[in-house]
Design a protein around this nucleic acid. Structure first.
Lengths: 230, 230
DNA sequence: TTATCAAGTTTTGTTAACAATTTGTGTCAA
DNA sequence: TTGACACAAATTGTTAACAAAACTTGATAA
């Protein structure tokens, strides 16, 4: 496939921070700060921000800078409808192609997610929840839908950060577990129905009455204390 | 929504050239040539290319440059499956929301497309065919799927350029016309079925045995003789 | 207190120069 | 003719400096 370009390190670090909700919607991404953070020059930062803008993860406002996008309620609804369209097909294809190894991997993912939740390790929980959906896309074997889903789940994370109810539990791992069982049983229609219900469930837990906000240091948000190549 | 950045002129000009098959797959996009073509500096060109790479319209190869992507047969199949997933939902939503004005607009589009075909104005025909699908996305009212579809139809154009049979007629305008009629009649299920069949028809006309190639001057390909803001 | 304005500071935008890599060309020898 | 090699040209990658715009701060006046 396509060869990775150097500053994809910046892009994936920022995406990783968004995926773990360390970078909330609306955060300003200052060029000089990113350049110092990644030991590179501003030109590469600007290229990375342009790429993130094309993926609709940041807004580029002329003479103002780059900001993590803040999806509107309408966009949130549109996005979940798009996810249902894509993930229903992914679910069906995954059911057709799943192997025993895949089942084991998925069960491990569900278990890790439950454990992260028990530990109240919210970033890890979020990352694993997203990873579950991406794993299904991989099993389905359609790389175009895989990429589309990666973009959509990234923004879903932002949406949940903005509009998710305080009762943070996304209650997801039970539903994830059910999907794995249906996959193992080879019940394609059930897998599709469970996925659709799961996504509707996620969407139904959004509260558009009052978007939340947060902030902390850019450094912590992007590097997250851990290594940036992660 | 997101504010447009300056060098989006470069991005949209290149996308327009791809959409009309003036820029075939594999074409090298030299930075200096683009910079002179758009009277800007290389920094902006590089940002534009980074954005196009994020949209998967160009491949960025380190130290080699930017090339219009050449989708593989596998990617072509994956992409059409993704289009069916998205456009089936778009078709259903469009059927629910379509107005009389929309119908008139669509009929006009179909007529223009037929006329362009009669004139053997292949670029215009391609542009209008793509525009038909985008118009349905607009009517459906889901901006997330609208954007996804824009990306997919862009690459579909490249795929058709690469693998389309010599019998260029995409035979599309009849099928487009049928979709409009079903929309007007309010037969949502029929619209969905026709759209699905239409996309399968398009895909079935691909020939993966021997990808075609072409070349001409970058200047003509991107600017296409016409104004670049188009 | 509140609003306005004018500094100064920070941040983004632009440009040019230079370095590093790749590509093209021509020569020479087998 | 073919291949290897060296050299030149073209292209991409990097950096720093400067210009332009936006933001912050603090003083002033109603």
């Amino acid at each position: 496939m396509s060869v990775e370009v150097p500053e994809d390190g910046i892009v994936s670090a920022i995406l990783g921070a968004v995926a773990e909700q360390r970078l909330p919607a609306g955060t300003k991404l200052t060029e000089a700060a990113l350049a110092e953070m990644f030991n590179c020059n501003r030109a590469n930062v600007r290229r990375a921000l342009a790429a993130l803008a094309a993926q609709q993860v940041v807004d580029l406002i002329p003479n103002r800078g780059a900001f993590v996008v803040s999806p509107s309620p309408k966009e949130a609804r549109d996005l979940f409808q798009a996810r249902r369209a894509i993930e229903r097909v992914i679910a069906r294809e995954a059911a057709a192609n799943v192997t025993a190894d895949d089942i084991a991997l998925l069960r491990r993912n569900v278990a890790d997610e439950a454990e992260a939740k028990a530990r109240r390790d919210h970033p890890t929980e979020l990352r694993l929840s997203r990873q579950f959906h991406q794993e299904l896309a991989r099993i389905a074997g359609n790389q175009v839908m895989d990429r589309i889903l990666a973009d959509l789940t990234m923004r879903s994370t932002l949406i949940i950060g903005l509009y998710g109810r305080a009762t943070l539990s996304n209650c997801a791992e039970d539903e994830h577990s059910g999907i794995v069982s249906a996959l193992e049983a080879g019940q394609a229609d059930t897998v599709v129905a469970l996925m659709d219900a799961h996504l509707r469930h996620l969407e139904s837990h959004l509260d558009f009455s009052a978007p939340r906000q947060r902030a902390s240091s850019l450094q912590d948000q992007i590097l997250g204390g851990a290594s940036l190549v992660a």
